[in-house]
Design a binder for these strands. Structure first.
Length: 270
DNA sequence: AACACGACCTGGTAGC
DNA sequence: TGCTACCAGGTCGTGT
């Protein structure tokens, strides 16, 4: 489910719902969720801890605990994390943490690609280093992007999905950014013109910024999902439908094992 | 080092 | 109505 906007909304709402609450128990229904550690080890570290606050790094939700440790939650493809009544638990619930106010922190993840881990401060810093720049930070400039792109021959779509470069884009928003910037998904990034790099940089910031606001506003009820994709999606999952700019039929191609959607007229190969 | 590809999973839907 | 095949918003590990 989640790209950066959805993860950001989940992290912010979780902070509103859980800050100050103490975790009484931690239950896991499947061992994959806490890999490589056994669930019982993670449970032991969570039990009795109070949630200080939440944050997001790349597509991870970070839950800061009162002993200085951090719970890292990756939502994978289908994950959701919220605080609510125990009745909200379902067949997809993989973890549930009863809190001191009678509610529970609940982690649903039908497809089991999600993950929960505990980090010490040094581990958290090391973990964070594997990721690239946050797209809405001051560090992410078009000059920075141009410099990184000059050093890679990856196709533009694949480059945008690489979390070691710019974090947060997934299959939907990468396609949307390429469409907005009129860049063909196959174009090697070191072949892009300066004007195209600038267009991509602007598109990434604008698209993610708008989607973050939309996802946060939409996601106000625990147990629902943070959605932003209905908002401003021009190209993703629209194979055969008319391009919103030129009316030419949108095409779908397989790339890096995923679907890439693009307009063959607006997005010319370099 | 950089890149391609299968593996990891469940569930929903389209087509026969 | 099954049943099958394919698809899904993400990483990972392993091979060249």
């Amino acid at each position: 489910m989640p790209e950066l906007p959805e993860v950001d909304a989940v992290a912010r709402r979780l902070g509103e719902w859980a800050a100050g609450r103490t975790i009484l128990e931690a239950h896991f229904s499947r061992p994959q969720t806490t890999r490589p550690l056994a669930p019982v080890k993670v449970s032991r570290q969570l039990k009795g801890r109070t949630v200080v606050g939440t944050a997001r790094r790349a597509k991870n939700v970070l839950v800061t605990l009162d002993d200085g440790l951090t719970l890292r939650v990756h939502l994978g493809m289908t994950g959701n994390l919220y605080v609510g009544d125990a009745a909200l638990r379902s067949a997809a619930t993989r973890a549930w943490f009863p809190l001191d106010d009678g509610r529970e922190m609940i982690f649903d993840d039908s497809r089991l690609f999600g993950r929960m881990q505990i980090f010490m401060p040094t581990e958290l810093a090391e973990f964070s280093q594997q990721y690239g720049v946050e797209p809405l930070s001051d560090e992410f400039t078009s000059a920075w992007l141009a410099e990184r792109m000059a050093r890679s021959r990856k196709p533009a779509k694949v480059f945008l999905l690489d979390q070691a470069q710019v974090v947060g884009l997934g299959n939907i928003w990468a396609a949307e950014a390429l469409f907005a910037a009129r860049v063909h998904p196959f174009t090697p990034v070191n072949a892009l013109a300066t004007r195209q790099v600038r267009a991509l940089h602007g598109a990434i910031r604008e698209i993610l910024g708008g989607a973050i606001d939309e996802a946060y506003r939409h996601y106000s009820m625990p147990g629902t999902t943070a959605e932003s994709e209905g908002f401003g999606v021009a190209i993703y999952n629209r194979e055969g439908l008319p391009c919103p700019r030129c009316r030419r039929a949108v095409e779908r191609i397989a790339q890096a094992g995923r679907s890439s959607y693009f307009c063959p007229r607006c997005q010319k190969a370099a």
